[in-house]
Design a binder for these strands. Structure first.
Lengths: 197, 197
DNA sequence: CAGATAACCGGAGGAGCCTCCGTTTAAACT
DNA sequence: AGTTTAAACGGAGGCTCCTCCGGTTATCTG
Protein backbone atom coordinates (compact mmCIF):
# COMPACT_ATOMS: atom_id res chain seq x y z
CA UNK A 1 0.00 0.00 0.00
CA UNK A 2 1.10 3.54 -0.64
CA UNK A 3 1.44 5.90 2.29
CA UNK A 4 -1.66 7.87 3.27
CA UNK A 5 -2.58 11.00 1.42
CA UNK A 6 -1.70 14.16 3.33
CA UNK A 7 -4.61 16.10 4.76
CA UNK A 8 -4.26 19.47 3.15
CA UNK A 9 -5.19 22.56 5.08
CA UNK A 10 -5.90 24.54 2.00
CA UNK A 11 -6.80 22.99 -1.35
CA UNK A 12 -4.70 25.50 -3.24
CA UNK A 13 -1.43 24.46 -1.63
CA UNK A 14 -0.60 21.67 -3.99
CA UNK A 15 2.76 20.00 -4.39
CA UNK A 16 5.08 21.81 -2.05
CA UNK A 17 7.98 20.23 -0.31
CA UNK A 18 7.43 19.75 3.40
CA UNK A 19 10.04 22.30 4.44
CA UNK A 20 8.74 24.79 1.91
CA UNK A 21 5.21 24.51 3.17
CA UNK A 22 6.37 24.90 6.74
CA UNK A 23 8.27 28.04 5.96
CA UNK A 24 5.51 29.48 3.92
CA UNK A 25 2.95 29.02 6.63
CA UNK A 26 5.34 30.46 9.13
CA UNK A 27 5.85 33.54 7.03
CA UNK A 28 2.16 34.19 6.60
CA UNK A 29 1.62 33.86 10.33
CA UNK A 30 4.38 36.28 11.21
CA UNK A 31 3.39 38.69 8.47
CA UNK A 32 -0.18 38.81 9.69
CA UNK A 33 0.96 39.75 13.16
CA UNK A 34 3.45 42.28 11.87
CA UNK A 35 1.00 43.97 9.52
CA UNK A 36 -1.58 44.20 12.26
CA UNK A 37 0.89 45.74 14.65
CA UNK A 38 2.98 48.02 12.51
CA UNK A 39 1.11 48.40 9.25
CA UNK A 40 1.94 47.10 5.81
CA UNK A 41 5.08 49.14 5.62
CA UNK A 42 6.87 46.83 8.01
CA UNK A 43 10.25 45.67 6.88
CA UNK A 44 10.02 42.42 5.00
CA UNK A 45 13.46 41.53 6.24
CA UNK A 46 12.15 41.74 9.76
CA UNK A 47 9.34 39.40 8.90
CA UNK A 48 11.73 36.92 7.37
CA UNK A 49 13.97 37.16 10.40
CA UNK A 50 11.14 36.60 12.82
CA UNK A 51 9.98 33.64 10.81
CA UNK A 52 13.47 32.25 10.99
CA UNK A 53 14.09 32.15 7.25
CA UNK A 54 16.28 34.10 4.88
CA UNK A 55 14.98 37.02 2.92
CA UNK A 56 15.44 35.01 -0.24
CA UNK A 57 12.93 32.47 0.95
CA UNK A 58 10.37 35.13 1.58
CA UNK A 59 10.78 36.54 -1.87
CA UNK A 60 10.55 33.16 -3.51
CA UNK A 61 7.22 32.50 -1.89
CA UNK A 62 5.90 36.01 -2.34
CA UNK A 63 7.39 37.82 -5.31
CA UNK A 64 6.33 41.19 -4.02
CA UNK A 65 5.01 42.86 -0.94
CA UNK A 66 1.57 42.99 -2.49
CA UNK A 67 1.49 39.23 -2.90
CA UNK A 68 2.16 38.75 0.75
CA UNK A 69 -0.43 41.32 1.72
CA UNK A 70 -2.96 39.62 -0.45
CA UNK A 71 -2.40 36.21 1.10
CA UNK A 72 -2.62 37.58 4.60
CA UNK A 73 -5.73 39.52 3.74
CA UNK A 74 -7.41 36.50 2.25
CA UNK A 75 -6.49 34.31 5.17
CA UNK A 76 -8.00 36.69 7.67
CA UNK A 77 -11.11 37.08 5.63
CA UNK A 78 -11.55 33.32 5.55
CA UNK A 79 -10.93 33.16 9.26
CA UNK A 80 -13.60 35.74 9.85
CA UNK A 81 -16.05 33.85 7.71
CA UNK A 82 -15.41 30.53 9.38
CA UNK A 83 -15.64 32.12 12.80
CA UNK A 84 -19.33 32.52 12.11
CA UNK A 85 -20.01 28.78 12.21
CA UNK A 86 -17.78 28.40 15.20
CA UNK A 87 -19.54 31.11 17.15
CA UNK A 88 -22.92 29.70 16.21
CA UNK A 89 -21.88 26.42 17.78
CA UNK A 90 -20.71 27.98 21.03
CA UNK A 91 -23.19 30.71 21.75
CA UNK A 92 -26.84 31.52 21.51
CA UNK A 93 -27.74 32.86 18.08
CA UNK A 94 -28.04 36.48 19.14
CA UNK A 95 -24.79 36.42 21.08
CA UNK A 96 -23.08 34.74 18.17
CA UNK A 97 -24.25 37.51 15.90
CA UNK A 98 -23.13 40.25 18.25
CA UNK A 99 -19.74 38.74 18.84
CA UNK A 100 -19.23 38.20 15.18
CA UNK A 101 -19.98 41.82 14.44
CA UNK A 102 -17.45 42.84 17.04
CA UNK A 103 -14.84 40.77 15.34
CA UNK A 104 -15.77 42.21 12.02
CA UNK A 105 -15.08 45.64 13.42
CA UNK A 106 -11.76 44.51 14.83
CA UNK A 107 -10.86 43.15 11.46
CA UNK A 108 -11.67 46.38 9.71
CA UNK A 109 -9.60 48.29 12.24
CA UNK A 110 -6.44 46.46 11.25
CA UNK A 111 -7.24 46.99 7.62
CA UNK A 112 -7.31 50.76 7.82
CA UNK A 113 -3.56 51.01 7.58
CA UNK A 114 -3.35 48.89 4.51
CA UNK A 115 -6.02 50.78 2.63
CA UNK A 116 -3.65 51.97 -0.05
CA UNK A 117 -2.06 48.61 -0.64
CA UNK A 118 -5.44 47.04 -0.84
CA UNK A 119 -6.66 49.60 -3.29
CA UNK A 120 -3.76 48.92 -5.59
CA UNK A 121 -4.39 45.23 -5.22
CA UNK A 122 -8.06 45.50 -5.98
CA UNK A 123 -7.63 47.40 -9.18
CA UNK A 124 -5.37 44.68 -10.53
CA UNK A 125 -7.24 41.75 -9.05
CA UNK A 126 -10.86 42.54 -8.56
CA UNK A 127 -11.81 38.93 -7.92
CA UNK A 128 -10.11 39.28 -4.59
CA UNK A 129 -12.61 41.88 -3.59
CA UNK A 130 -15.72 40.17 -4.86
CA UNK A 131 -14.74 36.82 -3.36
CA UNK A 132 -13.99 38.49 -0.09
CA UNK A 133 -17.23 40.34 0.21
CA UNK A 134 -19.07 37.20 -0.84
CA UNK A 135 -17.55 35.30 2.04
CA UNK A 136 -18.43 37.96 4.54
CA UNK A 137 -21.93 38.30 3.25
CA UNK A 138 -22.45 34.57 3.46
CA UNK A 139 -21.27 34.44 7.04
CA UNK A 140 -23.46 37.28 8.14
CA UNK A 141 -26.43 35.90 6.30
CA UNK A 142 -26.31 32.56 8.03
CA UNK A 143 -25.94 34.14 11.45
CA UNK A 144 -28.87 36.37 10.74
CA UNK A 145 -31.01 33.55 9.53
CA UNK A 146 -30.31 31.32 12.51
CA UNK A 147 -31.02 34.07 14.98
CA UNK A 148 -34.16 35.05 13.11
CA UNK A 149 -35.44 31.48 12.83
CA UNK A 150 -34.87 30.98 16.54
CA UNK A 151 -36.89 34.04 17.37
CA UNK A 152 -33.99 35.91 18.89
CA UNK A 153 -34.10 38.82 16.52
CA UNK A 154 -36.60 40.40 14.20
CA UNK A 155 -36.82 38.91 10.77
CA UNK A 156 -37.48 41.91 8.61
CA UNK A 157 -33.82 42.81 8.33
CA UNK A 158 -31.93 41.85 5.23
CA UNK A 159 -28.25 40.99 5.14
CA UNK A 160 -27.64 43.96 2.93
CA UNK A 161 -29.24 46.32 5.42
CA UNK A 162 -27.03 45.17 8.22
CA UNK A 163 -23.99 45.23 6.02
CA UNK A 164 -24.70 48.83 5.23
CA UNK A 165 -25.15 49.60 8.88
CA UNK A 166 -21.82 47.99 9.64
CA UNK A 167 -20.10 49.83 6.86
CA UNK A 168 -20.95 53.08 8.59
CA UNK A 169 -18.24 52.08 11.02
CA UNK A 170 -15.72 52.80 8.34
CA UNK A 171 -16.63 56.42 8.58
CA UNK A 172 -15.84 56.81 12.25
CA UNK A 173 -12.65 58.81 12.16
CA UNK A 174 -9.48 57.21 13.46
CA UNK A 175 -8.96 58.09 17.12
CA UNK A 176 -8.23 56.49 20.47
CA UNK A 177 -11.90 55.94 21.12
CA UNK A 178 -12.50 54.38 17.77
CA UNK A 179 -12.94 50.88 19.06
CA UNK A 180 -15.16 51.98 21.91
CA UNK A 181 -17.38 53.97 19.63
CA UNK A 182 -17.80 51.19 17.17
CA UNK A 183 -18.68 48.74 19.91
CA UNK A 184 -21.33 51.08 21.19
CA UNK A 185 -22.67 51.30 17.69
CA UNK A 186 -22.92 47.54 17.51
CA UNK A 187 -24.65 47.38 20.84
CA UNK A 188 -27.15 49.83 19.50
CA UNK A 189 -27.72 47.76 16.41
CA UNK A 190 -28.25 44.64 18.47
CA UNK A 191 -30.74 46.35 20.73
CA UNK A 192 -32.70 47.30 17.71
CA UNK A 193 -32.50 43.83 16.31
CA UNK A 194 -33.43 41.82 19.35
CA UNK A 195 -37.03 40.85 19.89
CA UNK A 196 -38.46 41.70 23.29
CA UNK A 197 -39.82 38.71 25.03
CA UNK B 1 16.91 103.87 -11.48
CA UNK B 2 16.92 100.65 -9.54
CA UNK B 3 17.40 97.44 -11.43
CA UNK B 4 14.26 95.97 -12.90
CA UNK B 5 12.12 93.73 -10.79
CA UNK B 6 12.53 90.08 -11.69
CA UNK B 7 9.69 88.63 -13.69
CA UNK B 8 8.54 85.74 -11.53
CA UNK B 9 7.47 82.59 -13.22
CA UNK B 10 5.26 81.50 -10.38
CA UNK B 11 3.74 83.77 -7.77
CA UNK B 12 3.98 81.12 -5.08
CA UNK B 13 7.76 81.08 -5.05
CA UNK B 14 8.22 83.72 -2.40
CA UNK B 15 11.35 84.50 -0.45
CA UNK B 16 13.87 81.93 -1.54
CA UNK B 17 17.53 82.53 -1.81
CA UNK B 18 18.73 82.86 -5.38
CA UNK B 19 20.69 79.63 -5.33
CA UNK B 20 17.85 77.77 -3.69
CA UNK B 21 15.37 78.91 -6.28
CA UNK B 22 17.71 77.95 -9.07
CA UNK B 23 18.17 74.47 -7.71
CA UNK B 24 14.52 74.00 -7.07
CA UNK B 25 13.56 74.96 -10.60
CA UNK B 26 16.27 72.76 -11.95
CA UNK B 27 14.98 69.81 -9.99
CA UNK B 28 11.43 70.23 -11.15
CA UNK B 29 12.59 70.46 -14.72
CA UNK B 30 14.69 67.32 -14.54
CA UNK B 31 12.04 65.45 -12.58
CA UNK B 32 9.40 66.24 -15.17
CA UNK B 33 11.58 64.79 -17.90
CA UNK B 34 12.51 61.76 -15.84
CA UNK B 35 8.95 60.96 -14.84
CA UNK B 36 7.78 61.27 -18.39
CA UNK B 37 10.49 58.98 -19.64
CA UNK B 38 10.79 56.35 -16.97
CA UNK B 39 7.72 56.71 -14.81
CA UNK B 40 7.38 57.95 -11.26
CA UNK B 41 9.48 55.10 -9.94
CA UNK B 42 12.63 56.71 -11.23
CA UNK B 43 15.41 56.97 -8.71
CA UNK B 44 15.32 60.29 -6.94
CA UNK B 45 19.07 60.14 -6.55
CA UNK B 46 19.33 60.03 -10.32
CA UNK B 47 17.19 63.10 -10.58
CA UNK B 48 19.33 64.94 -8.06
CA UNK B 49 22.46 63.89 -9.90
CA UNK B 50 21.12 65.04 -13.25
CA UNK B 51 20.10 68.34 -11.75
CA UNK B 52 23.60 68.70 -10.41
CA UNK B 53 22.65 68.86 -6.74
CA UNK B 54 23.03 66.55 -3.78
CA UNK B 55 20.29 64.25 -2.69
CA UNK B 56 19.96 66.25 0.48
CA UNK B 57 18.96 69.30 -1.49
CA UNK B 58 16.26 67.42 -3.27
CA UNK B 59 14.79 66.16 -0.05
CA UNK B 60 14.86 69.57 1.54
CA UNK B 61 12.82 71.03 -1.26
CA UNK B 62 10.51 68.03 -1.58
CA UNK B 63 10.10 66.08 1.63
CA UNK B 64 8.78 63.04 -0.16
CA UNK B 65 8.43 61.58 -3.58
CA UNK B 66 4.77 62.51 -3.61
CA UNK B 67 5.54 66.18 -3.07
CA UNK B 68 7.76 66.21 -6.08
CA UNK B 69 5.22 64.38 -8.16
CA UNK B 70 2.59 66.86 -7.15
CA UNK B 71 4.65 69.88 -8.13
CA UNK B 72 5.53 68.38 -11.48
CA UNK B 73 1.95 67.42 -12.09
CA UNK B 74 0.69 70.86 -11.26
CA UNK B 75 3.29 72.54 -13.41
CA UNK B 76 2.38 70.50 -16.43
CA UNK B 77 -1.27 71.09 -15.89
CA UNK B 78 -0.69 74.82 -15.78
CA UNK B 79 1.45 74.60 -18.86
CA UNK B 80 -1.29 72.80 -20.68
CA UNK B 81 -3.84 75.39 -19.66
CA UNK B 82 -1.71 78.32 -20.68
CA UNK B 83 -0.88 76.66 -23.97
CA UNK B 84 -4.49 77.27 -24.91
CA UNK B 85 -4.06 81.05 -25.04
CA UNK B 86 -0.75 80.67 -26.79
CA UNK B 87 -2.18 78.41 -29.47
CA UNK B 88 -5.13 80.70 -29.93
CA UNK B 89 -2.72 83.50 -30.72
CA UNK B 90 -0.75 81.53 -33.27
CA UNK B 91 -3.33 79.51 -35.13
CA UNK B 92 -6.81 79.71 -36.49
CA UNK B 93 -9.38 78.82 -33.85
CA UNK B 94 -10.12 75.36 -35.17
CA UNK B 95 -6.46 74.47 -35.56
CA UNK B 96 -5.76 75.77 -32.11
CA UNK B 97 -8.45 73.54 -30.71
CA UNK B 98 -7.19 70.50 -32.55
CA UNK B 99 -3.61 71.02 -31.58
CA UNK B 100 -4.57 71.60 -28.00
CA UNK B 101 -6.46 68.35 -27.87
CA UNK B 102 -3.45 66.58 -29.24
CA UNK B 103 -1.35 67.98 -26.47
CA UNK B 104 -3.94 67.01 -23.96
CA UNK B 105 -3.63 63.46 -25.14
CA UNK B 106 0.12 63.57 -24.93
CA UNK B 107 -0.18 64.84 -21.43
CA UNK B 108 -2.46 62.05 -20.41
CA UNK B 109 -0.11 59.52 -21.92
CA UNK B 110 2.68 60.48 -19.58
CA UNK B 111 0.29 60.41 -16.66
CA UNK B 112 -0.66 56.79 -17.10
CA UNK B 113 2.42 55.59 -15.32
CA UNK B 114 1.84 57.79 -12.36
CA UNK B 115 -1.73 56.74 -11.88
CA UNK B 116 -1.10 55.13 -8.55
CA UNK B 117 0.92 57.97 -7.16
CA UNK B 118 -1.71 60.38 -8.26
CA UNK B 119 -4.45 58.38 -6.68
CA UNK B 120 -2.67 58.41 -3.35
CA UNK B 121 -2.12 62.10 -3.75
CA UNK B 122 -5.71 62.84 -4.57
CA UNK B 123 -7.14 61.09 -1.58
CA UNK B 124 -5.00 63.19 0.71
CA UNK B 125 -5.25 66.43 -1.24
CA UNK B 126 -8.39 66.59 -3.25
CA UNK B 127 -8.01 70.27 -4.01
CA UNK B 128 -5.24 69.29 -6.36
CA UNK B 129 -7.67 67.38 -8.47
CA UNK B 130 -10.46 69.90 -8.50
CA UNK B 131 -8.13 72.79 -9.24
CA UNK B 132 -6.53 70.81 -12.01
CA UNK B 133 -9.70 69.85 -13.74
CA UNK B 134 -10.93 73.40 -13.37
CA UNK B 135 -7.91 74.69 -15.22
CA UNK B 136 -8.31 72.21 -18.01
CA UNK B 137 -11.98 72.83 -18.34
CA UNK B 138 -11.39 76.58 -18.51
CA UNK B 139 -8.82 76.20 -21.25
CA UNK B 140 -10.98 73.96 -23.32
CA UNK B 141 -13.98 76.16 -22.82
CA UNK B 142 -12.30 79.26 -24.11
CA UNK B 143 -10.95 77.47 -27.16
CA UNK B 144 -14.35 76.12 -27.88
CA UNK B 145 -15.99 79.46 -27.51
CA UNK B 146 -13.56 81.28 -29.75
CA UNK B 147 -13.87 78.67 -32.46
CA UNK B 148 -17.61 78.64 -32.15
CA UNK B 149 -17.93 82.42 -32.23
CA UNK B 150 -15.75 82.57 -35.29
CA UNK B 151 -17.95 80.10 -37.07
CA UNK B 152 -15.27 77.47 -37.38
CA UNK B 153 -17.10 74.81 -35.48
CA UNK B 154 -20.64 74.05 -34.50
CA UNK B 155 -21.92 75.74 -31.40
CA UNK B 156 -24.16 73.13 -29.91
CA UNK B 157 -21.34 71.31 -28.19
CA UNK B 158 -20.74 71.91 -24.53
CA UNK B 159 -17.36 71.78 -22.88
CA UNK B 160 -18.53 68.87 -20.80
CA UNK B 161 -19.47 66.89 -23.88
CA UNK B 162 -16.07 67.29 -25.42
CA UNK B 163 -14.38 66.54 -22.15
CA UNK B 164 -16.25 63.29 -22.00
CA UNK B 165 -15.32 62.48 -25.53
CA UNK B 166 -11.70 63.13 -24.72
CA UNK B 167 -11.85 61.05 -21.60
CA UNK B 168 -12.69 58.05 -23.73
CA UNK B 169 -9.08 58.18 -24.75
CA UNK B 170 -8.19 56.98 -21.31
CA UNK B 171 -9.79 53.71 -22.14
CA UNK B 172 -7.68 52.95 -25.19
CA UNK B 173 -5.47 50.17 -23.91
CA UNK B 174 -1.77 50.82 -23.66
CA UNK B 175 0.01 49.66 -26.78
CA UNK B 176 2.50 50.81 -29.40
CA UNK B 177 -0.27 52.30 -31.50
CA UNK B 178 -1.82 54.12 -28.62
CA UNK B 179 -0.75 57.54 -29.75
CA UNK B 180 -1.76 56.92 -33.31
CA UNK B 181 -5.17 55.70 -32.31
CA UNK B 182 -5.85 58.62 -30.07
CA UNK B 183 -4.84 61.06 -32.74
CA UNK B 184 -7.18 59.43 -35.19
CA UNK B 185 -9.90 59.76 -32.62
CA UNK B 186 -9.21 63.45 -32.30
CA UNK B 187 -9.25 63.88 -36.04
CA UNK B 188 -12.65 62.25 -36.03
CA UNK B 189 -13.91 64.55 -33.34
CA UNK B 190 -12.68 67.58 -35.21
CA UNK B 191 -14.34 66.47 -38.42
CA UNK B 192 -17.57 66.23 -36.55
CA UNK B 193 -17.10 69.59 -34.96
CA UNK B 194 -16.10 71.61 -37.97
CA UNK B 195 -18.75 73.47 -39.90
CA UNK B 196 -18.77 72.85 -43.61
CA UNK B 197 -18.49 76.01 -45.62
C1' DC C 1 34.12 96.63 1.94
C1' DA C 2 34.21 93.56 5.88
C1' DG C 3 31.89 90.71 9.14
C1' DA C 4 28.02 88.30 10.80
C1' DT C 5 24.51 84.96 10.20
C1' DA C 6 20.73 82.63 8.52
C1' DA C 7 19.84 79.79 4.78
C1' DC C 8 21.43 76.44 1.87
C1' DC C 9 24.35 72.64 0.15
C1' DG C 10 25.89 67.89 -0.18
C1' DG C 11 27.22 63.44 0.92
C1' DA C 12 28.12 59.92 4.35
C1' DG C 13 25.50 56.44 6.65
C1' DG C 14 22.07 53.20 8.43
C1' DA C 15 18.21 50.65 6.78
C1' DG C 16 15.37 48.33 3.48
C1' DC C 17 14.52 46.46 -1.29
C1' DC C 18 15.09 42.77 -4.37
C1' DT C 19 18.13 39.59 -7.15
C1' DC C 20 21.21 36.11 -7.94
C1' DC C 21 23.49 31.95 -7.28
C1' DG C 22 26.30 28.54 -4.65
C1' DT C 23 24.90 25.26 -1.00
C1' DT C 24 21.77 22.19 1.33
C1' DT C 25 18.14 18.81 1.55
C1' DA C 26 13.61 16.34 0.90
C1' DA C 27 11.98 12.90 -1.69
C1' DA C 28 12.02 9.79 -5.62
C1' DC C 29 14.39 5.86 -7.43
C1' DT C 30 17.39 1.47 -7.37
C1' DA D 1 20.53 2.16 2.62
C1' DG D 2 22.67 4.64 -1.10
C1' DT D 3 22.35 7.63 -5.07
C1' DT D 4 20.40 11.15 -7.68
C1' DT D 5 18.21 15.39 -8.57
C1' DA D 6 14.94 18.87 -8.55
C1' DA D 7 13.49 21.97 -5.19
C1' DA D 8 14.27 24.95 -1.54
C1' DC D 9 17.36 27.64 1.29
C1' DG D 10 19.76 31.94 2.65
C1' DG D 11 22.67 35.71 2.58
C1' DA D 12 25.94 38.63 0.10
C1' DG D 13 25.68 42.40 -3.03
C1' DG D 14 24.16 46.30 -5.69
C1' DC D 15 20.94 49.74 -5.46
C1' DT D 16 17.69 53.21 -3.55
C1' DC D 17 15.63 55.58 0.29
C1' DC D 18 15.73 59.20 3.55
C1' DT D 19 18.06 61.62 7.56
C1' DC D 20 21.37 64.27 9.72
C1' DC D 21 24.74 67.69 10.33
C1' DG D 22 29.34 70.01 9.40
C1' DG D 23 30.78 73.04 5.78
C1' DT D 24 29.63 76.74 2.34
C1' DT D 25 27.52 80.91 0.62
C1' DA D 26 24.08 84.62 -0.34
C1' DT D 27 22.42 88.48 1.79
C1' DC D 28 22.14 91.88 5.32
C1' DT D 29 24.23 95.37 8.43
C1' DG D 30 27.65 98.74 9.98
Amino acid sequence: MASAEPKTTSPASTKLRADARRNRDRLVEVAAAAFAEKGVETSLEDIARQAGVGIGTLYRHFPSREHLVEVVYRRELEGLASAATELARLHSPDMALEEWMRRFVGYIATKRGMANSLRILMTSNSSLFSEGSGLIRGALESLLKTAGDGGYIRRDIETTDLLHALSSIYSIPESPEWRERSHRLIGLLMDGLRTRR
